[in-house]
Structure formats: structure tokens, C-alpha cells
Amino acid sequence: MMYLGKVYVSYKPSVFDPQGDVIKTSLHQLNFQGVESVTQGKYFEIKLVATNLTEATANLVKMAEELLINPNTETYQYAIDEIEVL
């Protein structure tokens, strides 16, 4: 089976994200005065083959924790669905 995993990586709230801060300043300059905070993260789309959803999910979690994030500063969320192979 083919699966599509989507992994969203973001900084832990305790970690300062200077890019987010600069983007926030720019948004204020564009008159979006209501912007309270901006955090820039990372988004990955991973297509993978697995025998079932449980195995695909376990693999995706392992990938996220072994490479995609640095647990010192980052956390992640994910979604995974079976996709059709054309």
C-alpha cells in the first residue's frame, strides 16, 4: 500500500524563533496590526510504502524523531492517509 504522511514541525514555545519575529514585524508594517506572534515551521510530505496503516504510521513517527526534528527545540504533528497508486 502507498501512504502519504504529512509532518508539521514547529519550535517549542520556549524557543525563540528569530525568523518568525522578523516576519511579524513585516506583517505589522503591512498594517496587520492584529498579529500577535508568528512562528515559522517546516512541513514535509512523505510518500511511503507499507503493508498497513499501523506500519506506515510507526515508520513516519520514527522518521520524524530520528531525523526531521531536533527534540531539543522542536516538536511535530502528523497526518497520514492511504493514497491511490496511479
Partner: peptide, 17 residues
Amino acid sequence: LTEAGLLPGQLMMNETP
């Protein structure tokens, strides 16, 4: 060395990018 876990912590983007 930090990514490899041989030293603690992490090096991040400078405070002023």
C-alpha cells in the same frame, strides 16, 4: 557534534538573523 548527541544542546539561527 550536537546533532550527533556527542555534546548537549543545539546551535540555532542567530538571534538577529
